[in-house]
């Protein structure tokens, strides 16, 4: 018995119930229309503009723009910086998650809040703090200059600022996952005589591998795309301290729109690939959550 063909045949209470569980068709169409328009204007069109701008003068010009030495050095620096910060945050994230998720202690909530702190700091401020610490007028500036160590306006500063900005990604993914999984499997392995490290690599790591990949994926996307923090510490030395997002800005301000959008399109592709992998990983992650239950 379908509602559409025989509405009158329904008893009044059932009809009221069907009416009250969803909205009238006109309201449904309005809500879907608003949602689709909003997402199209604010998300699809900006994405389309990037690729259309990059290919505005043909694929040849596009590829030539990416082959420029400046673009090449920006790509290399971006990959290097991302590798450093993702590596550091991966090791930290696993270590911190072990301490926080597998043990009980006072101040756990405070510690998690402190690890999450970089997420609530403006990117510009994330760069500023390292300038205040290591810059020429900074707290450690004079000492560093005396020892001929350059951090600000050089690669170490860019890597530090990027590591700060992406600090929470791996840890915040692993802590809840490892808390849900508990300690029983590790205890069993230990009681069977496995060493601590062996237990970690043979029992814990296989259980959290999807969570690790998920954290690394998001961490990498942010590390490669970070703009504000890196912009403050980079010094914009051409061919030396420009990452891809910084090069997008420089080319754009020089009215080299095709070149700017060409570099931007690589970053947009990275974002799209990240979203696809993220969706794929979420399925696996649900699997590791249900594990043990």
């Amino acid at each position: 018995m379908s509602l559409a063909t025989q509405p009158r045949a329904l008893p009044p209470t059932l009809r009221a119930m069907a009416d009250a569980r969803t909205e009238p068709a006109a309201v449904r169409v309005l809500i879907i229309g608003l949602a689709v328009t909003f997402l199209t204007v604010f998300i699809f069109l900006p994405l389309l503009v990037v690729f259309s701008g990059a290919l505005a003068r043909g694929i040849g010009v596009y590829l030539a723009a990416l082959a420029e030495p400046e673009a090449q050095s920006a790509i290399r620096l971006t990959v290097l910086v991302a590798a450093i910060s993702v590596g550091i945050n991966l090791v930290f994230g696993v270590i911190a998650a072990w301490a926080i998720a597998k043990f009980e202690f006072h101040g756990k909530t405070l510690l998690i809040t402190l690890i999450d702190l970089p997420f609530s700091v403006s990117p510009v401020i994330s760069g500023l703090i390292f300038v205040l610490l290591f810059g020429a007028q900074g707290v450690l500036g004079p000492w560093l200059m005396g020892h001929d160590v350059q951090i600000i306006f050089a690669v170490p500063g860019i890597a530090l600022a990027t590591t700060f900005v992406t600090f929470p990604f791996v840890a915040r993914e692993l802590i809840p996952l490892m808390q849900e999984q508990g300690t029983q499997e590790e205890e069993a392995a230990l009681s069977l005589g496995a060493s601590g490290l062996r237990t970690f690599f043979r029992v814990t790591l296989p259980n959290i591998k999807w969570g690790v990949l998920y954290g690394v994926l998001l961490c990498n996307a942010r590390a490669m795309g970070e703009f504000g923090a890196v912009s403050v510490v980079s010094g914009h030395i051409r061919g030396e301290t420009n990452t891809m997002p910084l090069l997008v800005e420089i080319l754009y301000n020089e009215y080299q729109f095709v070149a700017s959008f060409a570099v931007a399109s690589l970053l947009a592709l990275l974002a799209l690939v990240t979203l696809v992998l993220k969706t794929a990983l979420e399925g696996h992650l649900q699997g590791s959550r249900d594990h043990d239950h």
Partner: peptide
Amino acid sequence: PTAVAGVA
């Protein structure tokens, strides 16, 4: 990346 969003 925010710079890409900005130019777009």
